[in-house]
């Protein structure tokens, strides 16, 4: 495996009118790394994830390199096809489609053939789609519309859909938000198991500090649109300044 980082973000900045969301962020993710992005609300975490994923209308300043390739300003679909998958803070699924159709749509978007008129391609994808649903524990809901399953199951579904696109880098925006304590841990364990099995590099935004310390190799602390601190969980835990601005406020 090469030594170059998988993702490099250089001097990313983004403003909305007068509000500065990102004021020059630098970050590099090593291959196979699990990186947590933490910080108080409004620190710019979600904005940074969106810049990497290409979801920022109007783009942002700075450069994003993915596997050495400049992806700044590329469309979300181009970025997705290069191998960056993401989930959204409020999980986005195709709510009127069945769970199985959601997964089929994910496989089609990635594997191409989306413009085919023959239904055969869909029949071919049925088995892999059901297999992926089993992996995320949703096989029994295959025929249910996505809007009918629980909030947690929709998060699993969205994760499974992104996984089905075989990403090399996965961006998870608050993967456990809005869930009970026990559920959070189970969901995160499931996700991380799949991520580890597939050698996927992970960048996740998370508010639950226990989850962060349990699952992250490296933690980046953001505040007011900048990287405030970066280090291993042990280093971050020992950092007094971080405790003051962030951890202190929580505990």
């Amino acid at each position: 495996m090469s030594e170059t980082p998988l993702l490099v973000a250089r001097n990313i900045h983004k403003t909305y009118g007068r509000f500065v969301a990102l004021a020059g962020v630098d970050m590099a993710l090593a291959r196979g790394e699990r990186r947590a992005l933490i910080g108080p609300n409004g620190a710019g975490k979600t904005t940074l994830v969106s810049v990497i994923g290409g979801q920022q209308p109007g783009g942002a300043g700075g450069t994003v390199l993915f596997d050495g390739r400049d992806i700044s300003g590329a469309t979300p679909q181009a970025i997705a096809r290069l191998g960056i998958g993401r989930t959204f803070q409020i999980s986005r699924t195709f709510r009127k489609l069945t769970v199985l159709e959601n997964m089929l749509a994910a496989l089609l978007g990635n594997g191409g053939g989306a413009f085919a008129l023959s239904a055969r391609r869909l029949r071919e994808l049925r088995a892999p789609a059901l297999a992926m649903l089993r992996e995320v524990g949703l096989a029994e809901f295959a025929r249910e519309p996505a809007e009918a399953i629980s909030h947690g199951d929709r998060k699993r579904l969205e994760f499974g859909m992104v996984l089905a696109t075989r990403p090399r880098l996965l961006l998870l925006d608050e993967p456990t938000a809005g869930m009970g304590l026990a559920e959070r841990s189970a969901l995160m364990e499931m996700m991380v198991r799949h991520i580890a099995e597939r050698d996927i590099t992970l960048l996740f935004v998370e508010h639950d500090i226990d989850i962060v310390f349990r699952f992250a190799d490296v933690i980046t602390v953001m505040a007011r649109g900048k990287v405030f601190a970066e280090g291993t969980p042990a280093e971050i835990a020992a950092d007094r300044a971080v405790q003051d601005i962030y951890l202190g406020a929580r505990h």
């Binding site: 994923g53 979801q55 469309t75 979300p76 679909q77 997705a80 096809r81 998958g85 993401r86 959204f88 986005r92 699924t93 195709f94 709510r95 009127k96 489609l97 159709e101 089929l104 749509a105 994910a106 089609l108 978007g109 990635n110 053939g113 989306a114 413009f115 085919a116 008129l117 023959s118 239904a119 391609r121 869909l122 969205e158 859909m161 992104v162 696109t165």
Partner: peptide, 26 residues
């Protein structure tokens, strides 16, 4: 046939959640 084919699924997916669809490569 269109509705039940891959392109039909794509049309429904994009119609419902264009951002999700784009992030899947559509």
């Amino acid at each position: 046939k269109v509705v039940r084919s891959p392109i039909g699924l794509a049309i429904r997916a994009v119609g419902e959640e264009p951002h999700r669809a784009a992030a899947l490569g559509y």
